[in-house]
């Protein structure tokens, strides 16, 4: 605590706040950033990886919307591995990628409603009801882009009561009872442990999300980073992903 205060004061008074001369640099474990929709499952993956690779500790996973993670990396946040929910976010930081991204999981969209489905929603078209409070991801984040593609292909337009910056914020608004429904990933419904109910959407197979993973240049730990990226396609990792509801690429 005192150390942080002193370090901050030192950085400011010496005016040499170069990127990375903060907390990030002291850490030695593998730094992994993952899309918001991977929350939870990556904690589990990290624990399994650590027990398979005792010499490689993993720092607490950083979860954010994929474009936000890409922006942070571009602005100098030191990350060894990024798992994104879209290709666009990785394309935006292609200069910092170490090799080509590889797909490791897929996910599909569902309509999420509170357990018991109080509003009696059955289809995507039911969401167009003005009486319903529907929350979506913003179009700029992967879950929002996919949801809009899905609505477009069904020829529906929905006025969202709120456009959230990541899928977990949509989940939270439905779970808190503030929204009647939202479009989220099938895995989010599984992760909600019964608080949410998922309603399958026709045509959602065409709008499936593929998750690419990549190591970053300037990774403090390039060999560990590569080890994680190849391990995530191992049977052990596949099984953990499948249990959380993620499909194989």
């Amino acid at each position: 605590m005192l150390g942080t205060v002193l370090a901050t004061a030192l950085i400011l008074s010496s005016a040499c706040a170069s990127p990375g001369s903060g907390d990030d640099e002291r850490r030695s474990g593998l730094r992994i950033a993952a899309a918001s929709s991977l929350s939870g499952v990556f904690d589990e993956l990290a624990r399994a990886f650590e027990s398979d690779h005792p010499g490689i500790p993993i720092e607490p996973i950083i979860y954010e919307g994929s474009p936000t993670l890409a922006a942070q990396i571009r602005d100098g946040r030191r990350i060894d591995v990024i798992a994104s929910a879209d290709e666009a976010s990785l394309t935006a930081i292609s200069a910092q990628l170490d090799g080509e991204p590889v797909a490791f999981a897929t996910n599909g969209l569902v309509i999420a409603v509170p357990a018991g489905n109080p509003a009696g929603i059955r289809t995507l078209a039911d969401l167009a009801d003005d009486e319903l409070t529907v929350v979506l991801c913003a179009a700029s984040v992967p879950c929002g882009a996919s949801a809009r593609a899905l609505l477009r292909s069904a020829d529906l337009s929905i006025v969202a009561a709120s456009e959230e910056q990541n899928v977990k914020a949509v989940v939270a608004k439905i779970q808190a009872g503030e929204a009647d429904a939202g479009i989220v990933y099938a895995t989010d419904v599984i992760a909600s442990a019964g608080a949410l109910e998922g309603i399958a959407v026709e045509g959602s197979d065409e709008a499936r999300t593929t998750y690419p993973i990549a190591t970053l240049t300037g990774a403090g730990n390039p060999s560990a980073a590569r080890a994680f990226v190849s391990w995530i396609r191992s049977p052990t990792a596949r099984e953990i992903l499948a249990r959380a509801g993620f499909g194989a690429p």
Partner: peptide
Amino acid sequence: GNAAGVTRTMPLAIYTAFNGAG
């Protein structure tokens, strides 16, 4: 919440724009 024209004030518009790619 964050909906254009209803609740998306300048700070939320800035946050939304910042979170988008490119």
